[in-house]
Amino acid sequence: MADALVIKNLNKRFGGLHAVQDVSFTVRENETLALIGPNGAGKTTAFNLITGFYRPDTGSVSAFGREIVGLRPHDVCAFGLARTFQVAKPFGGMTVLANVMTGAFLRDRRPDAAREKAREAIDFVGLSARENAAARDLTSIDQRRLEMARALATQPRLLLLDEVMAGLNPAEIDQAVALVGKLSSRGLTIVIVEHLMRAIMAVAKHIIVLDHGQKIAEGSPKDVVENPEVIRAYLGSGYVHAPAGGTS
């Protein structure tokens, strides 16, 4: 399998805070990789660096063989990397359909074609019933579904999901896990940030652990859960969903 995303020695400082420190990792094509770590570890910042929202101080990001540092976010997306935001950013005044059509327009500027693609994506995430609702009227869970549909409508090769399962109940988590599995089986490469170990175990075979901006562990879920440094990082931060805790 080829490499979808190769990140080398990525660094980002905010003033005195070294938010991402010399992080390197590789995502293989069609793999689902989980990026975990306690609050403030730098996961969202890493996403922002990969997708062009922030410019790394140093380091390189190459996607499907091409260096993408310096590209602006819309170019990154056009190149095939779509992301969701941790705090969903729906276009509140637009309908669900219009939101997703806006994403679909990236690949086809004809409204009818975009509408069709949008409907597919909406159906995929299970939002069809709310197609004509204003995005601002959706529940926060549906807003996150909408984010996914909108990202999918841009027909990415690599999808970066930032805590799309936060706040879901167990049944909804099962649905979301199934959704991610379905995406993966369609050939998509996925990087997922999530706190819930149960969900992570279900979707990812490969995990990267960040703490205070540094990569402290990498490997299979089993390796990571047993890694003493990981346990220390989670316990030290008083984190509720300690990975060793397993199911919660």
Binding site: A82, M94, F105
Partner: peptide, 26 residues
């Protein structure tokens, strides 16, 4: 209103970052 640029404009007006993230050259 009915074409791509119309959707893009509204999207930018709603949230420029989100628009950029789905490929809109704001």
């Amino acid at each position: 209103e009915r074409s791509r640029i119309g959707y893009y404009c509204v999207a930018i007006g709603e949230d420029e970052d989100a628009a950029e993230a789905i490929g809109v050259d704001a």
